[in-house]
């Protein structure tokens, strides 16, 4: 009889857990965008926090940071949001853990602070061959000009000799 009670209790527990699990899984924190160049802004959103229960707190931890950010606005799709400016952040991956105003957990998410733009990975000399080409062109031009003048002078001399 006792074993039967335990079994029934366990079954009820499992059933309740199954029913409640989707609700717990919905507790979600979103960081958008998921990566930003250092100095960029990301928006932190706790989608399940009820604005009426008070501000949400986003705890941001990472390479050189452990700070709390308070939500400032109600998110358009539900929940609460805050903007986070990443100037001065060390490059790397940060974790955001959100807690709603009623003290319930709103999950966590990560975002990455990246270098700005592409990589300056070329190192050739900007003047490669340009000076030499220009000097060569100038000399060739002088030679051509001289040849034209010389040819004209010869023609004049030949005409005068006739």
């Amino acid at each position: 009889m006792k074993a039967k009670t335990v079994l029934v209790s366990a079954a009820v527990g499992v059933g309740l857990g199954t029913l409640l699990l989707p609700g717990a899984a919905l507790a979600e924190t979103i960081v958008s965008p998921a990566s930003t160049p250092v100095g960029g802004t990301v928006v932190l959103t706790a989608t399940t926090c009820n604005p009426k229960a008070g501000d949400a707190i986003f705890r941001v931890t990472g390479p050189n940071r452990d700070q709390n950010v308070r939500s400032t606005t109600a998110a358009a799709g539900g929940g609460l949001s805050a903007e986070l400016f990443t100037a001065g952040f060390t490059l790397g991956t940060y974790t955001v853990t959100a807690t709603c105003g009623d003290g319930s957990s709103a999950g966590s998410a990560t975002f990455t602070v990246t270098p700005i733009g592409g990589a300056p990975a070329g190192g050739r000399d900007a003047g490669d061959g340009v000076g030499t080409l220009a000097a060569g062109g100038a000399l060739l031009g002088s030679a051509a000009g001289g040849a034209v003048i010389l040819a004209r002078r010869r023609r004049h001399m030949a005409a005068a000799a006739r």
Binding site: G129, A134, A138, G141, A143
Partner: peptide, 12 residues
């Protein structure tokens, strides 16, 4: 001048 110019252009 012409020869040197040609040489420099080739080198460039």
């Amino acid at each position: 001048l012409g020869t040197t110019g040609l040489g420099l252009v080739a080198a460039g």
